[in-house]
Design a binder for these strands. Structure first.
Length: 510
RNA sequence: GGCCCAUUCGUCUAUCGGUUAGGACGCAAGAUUUUCAUUCUUGAAAGAGCAGUUCGAUUCUGCUAUGGGCUACCA
């Protein structure tokens, strides 16, 4: 590997970026950084039919959120600009014509309708139509038409395409960094369209090979769905005489549905309640889809989870920062088989990152939610509340249910807890606890606990009954952190007020 | 249908001819706890099948089965 590493992520702006695409981008990025190379973002918008406005911006924003940095691309420019294929259209025709001149390609004048009827005819006979050596000389192509007629048709504005002239019966030997050696006989392949006059645009295969060559791409890391077209790509490099600088290839395993078969799709996410897109998406037609960001996932957790879906470090480490991923990544450790996406594991990763966040980090993330609930507090208090409860949270959004009692006195009480504790001697004991608390000056967690526990033991009262009754008054429910976390947080005045509220407003059950 | 790729616990995976087949998620049980959680401990759980190579196969080869991808003037 003497050549500088240059990899590209080359999505098509036909909709929101799927998490499988994010993983492809991530592996490209990790590989680039691992080898001190460059990461290129190229937009492959050669399909004018499927173009979706907003998709490109979505892709760029997604990569940013994930922390995948682009060195050259549509936003940052670079030595091989432009990086949008629709802005490079004049480049491709030249190369397509070069192939025609070399005898590696030819003009074909069949219309899409004609081909469709041909396909149907074959199908009705139980055969499969393939545009290949067996049929190309019976169709309207520059292979059989006289040169002047070809010229005339083009000049008169007939629509044409340029097709690759697939060699007959030849074994193409290929190498994949993940799968090893692969061989295919060209007789099973067809004459792919390389360029179409209708929109003066190349198809994926031509544009991809030409741009990878021009942009000096050293490694092509892409999804397994491209493996079947690898022989064509090898042959294109040969046809152009670019074999010396042909990139190495690595085809990544697919991301599969959590249950059943097939690739992960948008519908799965909607059905099973997890996102398949990094960001919330709203299509021009008004359809929406959930995103990891809006659903409360941390980008670090999302990336960590994705990195381990199809790659492993060979050790038992599971939590990786982006830098650690870069330091450890290698294509050799990418698995060959498809990985089933597991929503539960994604949540687990998020919880791990939640538990490791500092109070200050939590405060910054939690403040917007507090404000949305009309709570105005200092960052210190927001962070402290979040820090006390973070172990029980998976998402930042879980924190409100977990910590709201720190900021708002209970207005109603859980029925079950009321029946269990607001009876017998407990109300009387709570009155006594109130007096004990009222006598404490230093309301710190440690001091309050020492005094109250000492008092309970001295009186010989049942600890569980006392504490849960107090919990009922302060939290209003049978959950929450240690009671002294609550008392020290809300302070003496508020503690006494909440106890008074319960004593005065709610009649004990009998 | 054709071509290609894959196949270890339910899931993600470790193992690069010799292991009691390891870890993680999830699940179950127990411990801890003033509640709810958390946490900790323990447990159940796997080499698709059949041949072959070999002293010895999860690991190598072949076949079968299963899963997946591709088979557009889409990427």
């Amino acid at each position: 590997m003497t050549r500088p590493v240059r990899v590209r992520f080359a999505p098509s702006p036909t909709g929101p970026l799927h998490i499988g695409g994010v993983r492809t981008a991530l592996y490209n990025y990790l590989f680039a950084r691992r080898h001190g190379g460059k990461m290129i973002l190229r937009i492959e918008d050669t399909d004018s039919q499927r173009f979706v406005p907003g998709a490109e911006a979505y892709i760029i924003e997604s990569l940013k959120w994930c922390g995948i940095e682009i060195d050259e691309g549509v936003e940052q420019g670079g030595p091989h600009a432009p990086y949008r294929q629709s802005e490079r259209r004049e480049i491709y025709l030249k190369y397509a014509l070069q192939l025609v001149e070399n005898g590696w390609a030819y003009y074909a004048f069949d219309t899409a309708d004609e081909l469709n009827t041909l396909r149907k005819e074959y199908e009705s006979r139980g055969e499969t139509f393939a545009y290949n050596a067996a049929v190309r000389e019976q169709l309207a192509t520059s292979l059989v038409l006289p040169a002047d007629e070809v010229r005339a048709r083009i000049d008169r504005g007939d629509q044409w395409v340029i097709r690759f002239k697939m060699p007959a019966n030849e074994i193409v030997k290929m190498h994949d960094l993940i799968r090893g050696d692969v061989e295919v006989n060209t007789s099973t392949l067809d004459d792919k369209v390389l360029y179409k006059s209708a929109d003066a645009l190349p198809t994926y295969h031509l544009a991809n090979i030409v741009d990878d060559h021009l942009m000096e791409i050293s490694h092509v890391i892409r999804g397994e769905e491209w493996l079947p077209s690898l022989p064509l790509h090898y042959l294109l490099y040969r046809a152009f005489g670019w074999e010396d600088t042909q990139p190495e290839f690595a085809h990544l395993p697919l991301l599969l549905k959590p249950t059943g078969g097939g690739k992960l799709s948008k519908r799965d996410g909607d059905k099973m309640g997890f996102p398949v897109f990094p960001l919330f998406w709203k299509s021009p037609t008004g359809e929406t889809a959930h995103g990891y960001r809006e659903d409360g996932y941390f980008p670090e957790a999302f990336i960590n989870m994705l990195a381990l879906l199809g790659w492993n470090p060979g050790t038992e480490q599971e939590i990786f920062s982006m830098q650690e991923l870069i330091d450890n990544f290698s294509l050799e450790r990418v698995s060959k088989s498809g990985a089933r996406f597991q929503p539960d594991k994604a949540k687990w990763f998020n919880a791990q990152y939640m538990h490791h966040k500092s109070d200050a980090e939590l405060a910054a993330l939690y403040q917007p939610i507090l404000r949305a609930h009309g709570i105005e507090v200092s960052d210190e208090r927001a962070g402290r509340a979040a820090g006390i409860m973070k172990e029980r949270a998976t998402f930042i959004t879980d924190l409100w249910d977990l910590t709201s009692f720190f900021f708002i006195a209970p207005t109603e009480y859980e029925e079950k807890q009321l029946r269990k504790y607001w009876k017998g001697e407990n109300p009387a004991h709570l009155r006594e606890v109130r007096e004990v608390l009222a006598s404490i000056d230093d309301f710190s967690l440690e001091n309050t606990e020492r005094i109250v526990h000492g008092w309970i033991e001295e009186k010989g009262y049942p600890m569980g009954q006392i504490m849960n009754t107090l919990r009922l008054a302060l939290v209003g429910a049978g959950k929450g952190p240690g009671m002294y976390d609550v008392t020290s947080f809300i302070g003496k005045e508020e503690t006494l007020r909440r106890i008074d509220t319960l004593l005065e407003k709610v009649k004990p059950v009998e």
